[in-house]
């Protein structure tokens, strides 16, 4: 399918973001997201093609403005909702609880 992820050969995307001594993960949430996504694959919740298809359906403009692991968050969330493992309501409710715990 031709969509925004299929960018081989495109011009004008900008310079390479090279970084010396780059850490494996830049943020703790990236580390957690990586572990959760791989754990779900090992548990057989989805296969690699399903996870890619979930990410490839991120709207093009959002995709362009998202970091790599933000795309994982969107993709994994979509998979969990579509497979009826979580609902948007329970995710939203949990976020509200976490916000209050965090003093926000």
């Amino acid at each position: 399918m031709n969509s925004i992820h299929d960018i081989g050969g495109m011009d004008g995307v900008g310079p390479l973001p090279l970084e010396e001594n780059e850490p494996i993960f830049h943020e703790e949430w990236e580390r957690r997201m990586f572990g959760v996504k791989v754990a779900l694959a090992i548990e057989g919740v989805y296969n690699i093609d399903e996870t890619r298809w979930a990410m490839e359906r991120i709207p093009a403009l959002r995709w362009l403005q998202s970091s790599y692991y933000e795309q994982w968050v969107d993709g994994v969330t979509r998979s969990l909702l579509e497979k009826d493992i979580l609902t948007q309501e329970e995710i939203d409710a949990r976020i509200d609880i976490l916000r209050k715990q965090g003093g926000e």
Binding site: W29, R32, V36, L80, L86, E90, I91, I95, L98, R99
Partner: peptide, 15 residues
């Protein structure tokens, strides 16, 4: 907007 770290924490704790 919801910080992405909270979205990840919500998913992980629920799962």
């Amino acid at each position: 907007p919801v910080p992405v770290a909270l979205r990840v924490k919500a998913i992980e704790t629920l799962l």
